[in-house]
């Protein structure tokens, strides 16, 4: 009896994706700590392994050996299921992301839609975790997360709709293929379709920060206000899984931004396209995300919503209308 080659391929990709997500989560923590260290005139982790490279391993062992306390009064099912609800959709989203021309687990026509569909589940996970913890700080945090995500999904999706109108497809592979050639062909510089494309990228990037609850929009955690927000009651690996989910979401956000606007695995000069270009762009975006976190203070909750409803949504709507008009005219 032999397995269908497609099944073997999927299994290999599945293992690869999980490994990629876990490795990224672990080493982005290392990157974050190193980067924060250098921004703050210190070295960051350096004791465990060369350049502190084994630090994530040590952290992981620490988290895993900790006792999993389920505090009295919590809803045990919701409390335990929440971290998984954050982690699983993030890993699912990796399935459709093409890292190279042939490096994609499943090339689905509605890949873009699928990513956004799964991205919304992540909020549910946080909400359930916070609600199940029965902690006032966690509930406040959950309320913030939900309204923040609702507010930011709108400009983000409008921007994506604009892009889909230009590309005419939701297949991520095809979107990248359309941006072949050089950096002037990338969607971010597709000024012929809409002169507001760089702005659209900016909106997408800001929304991505908000969607992944990263500073300066880290209302959900807001350690100086809400202690640890939704994660307040979580010990050991429960917290660890939330943490990994968060980083996996950042990787997905940066990957989608790379695909939609920065030409995926295409080379800026049309030479040697490949996965290395994708990773370079993606890690640059992640680097920027971390950079922002350690530079800016946190905004407040209402100015965050104001920014979305009063600035980002009108601009993205304007961009949508402009783009559709230009498609019609030219």
């Amino acid at each position: 009896m032999s397995l269908h080659p497609e099944v073997i391929r999927l299994l290999i990709f599945l293992v690869g994706i999980i490994a990629f997500a876990a490795l990224n989560a672990a080493y982005l923590v290392w990157l974050e700590r190193k980067e924060a260290g250098h921004i703050q005139r210190r070295i960051g982790p350096k004791e465990v392994g060369p350049f502190g490279l084994l630090q994530p391993l040590a952290d992981g062992i620490k988290l895993m050996t900790k006792q999993l306390i389920v505090p009295a009064g919590v809803d045990p099912i919701l409390f335990k299921i929440a971290p998984i609800l954050v982690m699983v959709p993030a890993i699912m989203s990796f399935v459709t992301i093409p890292y190279g021309e042939n490096l994609v687990a499943r090339n689905i026509d509605i890949g873009l839609l699928m990513i956004f569909a799964f991205a919304s589940v992540n909020v549910l996970g946080l909400l359930l975790g916070a609600w199940g913890s029965r902690n006032k700080y966690a509930v406040i945090s959950a309320a913030r997360v939900v309204s923040q995500n609702v507010a930011y999904e709108i400009p983000m999706l409008i921007t994506v709709v604009t892009l889909v109108m230009i590309t005419g497809t939701m297949n991520l592979h095809e979107i990248v293929m359309q941006q072949q050639g050089g950096f002037w062909n990338w969607n971010i510089l597709n000024l012929a379709a809409s002169p507001l494309m760089p702005v659209a990228f900016l909106i997408f990037f800001v929304c991505m920060l908000a969607e992944t609850n990263r500073a300066p929009f880290d209302m959900a955690e807001a350690e100086s206000e809400l202690i640890a927000g939704a994660f307040t009651e979580y010990p050991g690996m429960g917290f660890g899984v939330f943490f990994m989910g968060e980083y996996a979401n950042i990787v997905i956000g940066a990957s989608v931004a790379t695909i939609l606007f920065l030409g995926g695995w295409q080379c800026p000069f049309g030479l040697f396209p490949g996965v290395h270009w994708f990773l370079l762009k993606m890690y640059f975006l992640i680097f920027t995300v971390i950079w922002i976190r350690w530079t800016y203070p946190r905004t407040t909750f209402y100015s965050l919503l104001n920014l979305s409803w009063k600035i980002l949504i009108p601009i993205s709507f304007f961009n949508l209308i402009l783009t559709s008009a230009m498609i019609k005219v030219f």
Binding site: A36, R41, P216, P297
Partner: peptide, 16 residues
């Protein structure tokens, strides 16, 4: 104070 507002880095510069 800036730490209260969520900005971590100024603290270490001030401590320096």
């Amino acid at each position: 104070f800036v730490l209260d507002l969520g900005g971590f880095s100024p603290l270490l510069y001030a401590f320096d």
